[in-house]
Design a protein around this nucleic acid. Structure first.
Length: 286
DNA sequence: TATATCTCCTGCGGGC
DNA sequence: TGCCCGCAGGAGATAT
């Protein structure tokens, strides 16, 4: 499941293998992959044709390409299973390849997405808080790897929320890039249960939590991100290795690395949460 | 306005 | 073998 480290790996791959190349033609074969582009797949294909890719950028789990046409960006969200692959044009077409962009030198940029939660859309670049981002990304908060990430401002934003801390970590308008996996990992590192009320946590505790978020993402990025199966790969189709280093996520009934208590799985927000019942005490109420 | 819940989607694995 | 069902979860839509 692509979260910030996985999306950053993909962005770096696009920077290495797609930037500088021109787009000849684009073919959209699944309308759901362009549902966020309200003018439709034909419009997206026509507008991309002939553009040269100038840069690959990212905020949180969103990434976008800029072109030699100023002000225009191709916003890409990988959803749960999206892949951006740069392939030789004669390589076998993947079963779930929904968009194919033929690049000028014979390669193809392909958007492959089994569960079709992701997609492409063209957007206008706008300036928000001193940074230029696509308009559809304007509401997304800075992520922990952003050089202008303001930890104290995020601490204040979290303490303003009268809801569970895990919900807040997953709220991309407060802090971006965190999904279910890294939320569980950061909460485990901070010794916090996800149902603790955000507004009741102290500033030092939240600073520790945010430092844990940054650390786990940096460590994951260093080994290519987290892969459980073939659904997350970089632009060359290779998986990351951070799943071997996870301390909480997916480790139900395994001993906690700190205290050896067996980790538990609980339902939260219609998804699974993993925690240590000893290190991460549940709040008394709720 | 803030918070909570629902919905979309497909492949896999388990149970029968 | 084949069918059914639950599960995985990001984010926008809808409900409270």
């Amino acid at each position: 499941m692509p979260e910030l480290p996985e999306v950053e790996v993909v962005r770096r791959g696009l920077a290495d293998h797609a930037v500088g190349r021109a787009i000849d033609t684009v073919t959209v074969t699944h309308p759901r992959a362009v549902r966020r582009h309200v003018a439709g797949g034909a419009d997206l294909a026509a507008r991309l044709s002939g553009l040269r890719i100038d840069s690959a950028q990212r905020r949180g789990k969103y990434l976008w390409l800029t072109f030699d046409e100023p002000g225009t960006a191709l916003v890409v969200h990988l959803g749960m299973s999206g892949q951006m692959l740069v392939q030789p044009a004669d390589a076998p077409v993947e079963k779930h390849a929904h968009i194919r962009a033929v690049l000028g030198d014979g390669a193809e940029l392909r958007f492959v997405d089994q569960r079709t939660f992701g997609g492409w859309a063209l957007g206008e670049l706008v300036e928000v808080d001193g940074t230029v981002v696509p308009d559809s990304v304007a509401h997304i908060a800075r992520d922990p790897l952003d050089p202008r990430f303001d930890r104290e401002a995020v601490v204040a934003a979290i303490r303003a929320k009268n809801t569970e801390i895990k919900r807040v970590l997953l709220d991309q308008t407060v802090i971006s890039g965190i999904g279910n996996i890294y939320a569980d990992e950061a909460l485990w590192r901070a010794g916090l249960h996800g149902t603790r009320i955000a507004a009741e946590l102290t500033r030092p505790v939240l600073r520790t939590l945010l430092d844990g978020v940054s650390a786990v993402m940096t460590e994951a990025l260093a080994v290519g991100g987290t892969s459980f199966d073939a659904l997350y790969v970089n632009v060359n189709g290779e998986s990351g290795y951070f799943s071997r280093s996870l301390a909480a996520y997916g480790r139900e009934d395994e001993p906690c690395d700190r205290c050896a208590t067996l980790l538990v799985r609980e339902q939260f927000m219609n998804r699974s949460s993993f925690s240590c019942p000893k290190c991460q005490r549940k709040p008394r109420r709720r």
